[in-house]
């Protein structure tokens, strides 16, 4: 039953020290999605890995105390709806779905290319929550299975 309570102190300490850095890198990748390789999906995966890193090191109960699982679940579906809303605003403003209705800005600047950074952030949240829940759900199976035996 050791997995339920996480790993040894060494792993936990390293996770504790490094988790903010992983988060930061994920946000960096998401914010620069329209300028450099990466973007919403890659950054979202990194964010999810930061959460999973914590979950593997500290176990499920502590993760439940740390982040609000229900809120994350709601954020996952809300981000999908937000994506569609941005798309529908494209219909309302520019006449076709997902049209870029914000101004393009200056080339190579951070705040440029209209709705694409917004969509990247939305996708990042969605992927982060989705990927986290994939592993989270699979680990629920694991515990149930042990309980059955």
């Amino acid at each position: 039953m050791k997995e339920k309570h996480g790993m040894t102190l060494i792993v936990r300490t390293i996770t504790r020290i490094s988790v903010w850095l992983i988060f930061l890198y994920g946000f960096y990748i998401i914010f620069h999605g329209h300028l450099t390789p990466g973007g919403g999906f890659a950054g979202g995966v990194i964010l999810a890995l930061a959460l999973l890193n914590y979950m593997l090191a500290y176990g499920r109960e502590k993760t439940e105390n740390w982040i609000n699982i229900n809120l994350l679940h709601d954020m996952e579906s809300a981000s999908a709806i937000l994506f569609l809303i941005v798309g529908i605003l494209g219909i309302a403003i520019s006449g076709s779905f997902l049209a870029n209705w914000l101004s393009g800005g200056k080339l190579f600047a951070l705040f440029s290319s209209g709705t694409i950074p917004i969509l990247n952030i939305i996708i990042g949240i969605k992927v982060c929550a989705g990927l986290f829940f994939v592993v989270w759900t699979l680990s629920i199976f694991h515990i149930e299975e042990e309980a059955e035996e």
Binding site: D74, S77, I81, L84, G87
Partner: peptide, 16 residues
Amino acid sequence: PYLIIMPLLAAFLITL
């Protein structure tokens, strides 16, 4: 586009 958007929106509204 609404033929695709509407069921997608409904799916995620239901989960939300």
